[in-house]
Amino acid sequence: MIEISSYHIQVLAFMGINIILAVSLNLINGFTGQFSLGHAGFMAIGAYTAAILTKACGWPFLLATLAGALLAFAFGLLLGIPILRLKGDYLAIATFGLSEIVRVAIVNFDDVTMKAATLVGLQDLVPKEITRGALGYPAIPEVKSLVWIYGWAFVTCLILRNIVRSSEGRAISSIGEDELAAESLGINTARYKTLSFAIGAFFAGVAGALFAHWVTYIKADLFKIDKSIEILLMVVLGGMGSLSGSVLGAVVLTLLPEYLRVFAQWRMVIYPILLILLMLTRPEGLLGRRELSTILGVLYTRAMGRGGPAPGNPPVAAE
């Protein structure tokens, strides 16, 4: 038995969170074919909401997580309706802008609410510090549990797998293949696009909540475009439209930077080079649109049967 240090547990935790993020983004980018660069924004919404609820309001962790996720879902729904009319590059840019706005909104939240409250004369009812602006949100109650994280990762994979396999999932996939054709078949593309966007946002919110309670200190800068790109890379590496691919992508891209740590500061130079090479050599990702199950066949089914969402990485070993 190799000794498992807190460092290893931390990596495992981030891996699980990344699995949730990647799989949920794949629903939007891979299956529905809607290029979103704003996943980190939804993650931020979930993280801040849950953190504020557990710390300031004393909510239990699960409830706070769900609340954060639901708020992300609501934002996804609300913003998805207008913004998903855009396509391709434009959608990517708009979602990027959206997540930047979320970030700036978090930074300025206290200021703006206070000003608004003062305007209507309710300044005494509104707490002075809600998000604490650019300083970040410290001392979040710690929930350092791999069970929570991998439990959620499992639930995420399960729900998304069921969604993808349902008839709604087929409608969603048909949009990803060819939106015009889907529309001409009478599929309500706007509805399904928005729905998948919001569901993806929901799980990003969950991931954010888990992340916040693991690291116990968050700030808006953690949820910048870099984070969205990182998640997107996991999806692309694994293969757009392959759930197991996203799991694989999340595992690889969580571990890779850790291995690259020996390269110290050059890590962040090598990382984008790898991305460019990936795009030039295998733009469809490792698995393409196929699931690992169709590749590994029986082997995979057995692994799933035991309930491990990340094949090859027994997650609860640390407990």
Binding site: F35, G88, D226, V269, Y271, P272, L275, I276, P283
Partner: peptide, 29 residues
């Protein structure tokens, strides 16, 4: 083989993002 694959928006966009990240970090170094 690859010629058949028309480089989609995503591929192009990600490549561009990769170049952008690379230059930023190269600049830092």
């Amino acid at each position: 083989q690859r010629k058949k694959l028309k480089a989609g928006t995503l591929t192009a966009l990600l490549t561009a993002l990769g170049v952008s990240l690379l230059l930023q970090n190269l600049g830092i170094q």
